[in-house]
Amino acid sequence: MSPRIGVITFPGTLDDVDAARAVRYADAEAVSLWHADADLKGVDAVIVPGGFSYGDYLRCGAIARFAPVMTSVVEAAAKGMPVLGICNGFQILCEAGLLPGALVRNEKLHFVCRDQWLRVENNATAWSTRYDQGAEVLIPLKSGEGGYMASQETLDRLEGEGRVVFRYVGGNPNGSRNDIAGIASENGRVVGLMPHPEHAIDALTGPSDDGLGVFFSALDALKPLATTA
């Protein structure tokens, strides 16, 4: 049986369809999850996709983190369920306390939309095992509030524990501290990143198919569960 990966839709979500398509490209089953429904429908992993949940009012992700579905996601993550937050999803995971730090307005206050090179710093998380450590991948970036900020103590902890998963190379597009593009939870099961791997799954429609590794990695993380099921 194929793993079932839930993709959440909030009011203002833009990239849920693309995320579901990426899940199917990785030979998993994409399951639609609604923000107002706490039922995760028995999925094995969850993706919180990009967009502008609730119009980005207050702060990006600040309202979405109170949605009923996020209460269930936080509980499931505490039990080890793999969770991926992309762009606005990364912001939501930080607001929900699943990842440390916060995402703020880009350094020059401009919306950035470009194909961005990333370096894989940690290939041992639930969402990065299909990459070689140190590999450079080309992934689209599109965000106005993508600057990753955290206290120096938090940054030191992330760096010291190897929890920086992706780092910008070839120039920092948004002023993120330490050129951080993506980070992981302590157990490596929860990952958030600002660039959009779901837009890089097919060389015909994206700058590369480098993003596929994120979704195939989740299958690796779920294999032990399938074995014991």
Rank of each mutant, 00 (worst) to 15 (best):
F52E: 03
S53K: 08
S53E: 11
S53C: 02
Y54D: 10
G55L: 05
D56T: 00
D56K: 05
Y57E: 08
Y57T: 08
Y57P: 03
L58M: 06
L58G: 07
R59G: 08
R59Y: 06
C60E: 00
C60I: 03
G61V: 04
A62P: 15
A62H: 02
A62M: 14
I63V: 04
I63K: 00
I63G: 05
I63F: 01
A64P: 01
R65K: 10
R65L: 05
R65Y: 01
F66M: 01
F66V: 14
A67E: 07
P68A: 14
V69Y: 13
V69G: 00
V69E: 12
V69W: 10
V69S: 11
V69F: 07
M70E: 09
M70C: 05
T71V: 13
S72V: 13
S72Y: 13
S72T: 11
V73E: 00
V73H: 09
V73M: 07
V73G: 01
V74N: 00
V74W: 02
E75W: 10
A76V: 06
A76Q: 08
A76P: 00
A77S: 09
A77K: 02
A78E: 03
K79V: 05
K79L: 06
G80V: 11
G80L: 12
V83W: 12
V83T: 00
L84Y: 10
L84M: 15
L84D: 12
L84S: 01
G85D: 01
G85L: 12
G85K: 01
G85W: 08
I86G: 08
I86V: 13
I86S: 03
C87T: 09
C87A: 10
N88V: 06
N88F: 04
Q91N: 03
Q91T: 05
I92P: 02
I92E: 01
I92C: 13
L93C: 15
L93S: 14
L93D: 06
C94G: 12
E95V: 03
A96G: 03
A96M: 12
A96H: 10
G97Q: 07
L99R: 05
L99C: 14
L99V: 14
P100E: 12
P100Q: 02
P100L: 10
G101W: 09
G101C: 02
A102G: 09
L103E: 02
L103Y: 01
L103R: 11
V104W: 13
V104E: 05
R105N: 11
N106A: 15
E107C: 09
K108E: 15
H110F: 08
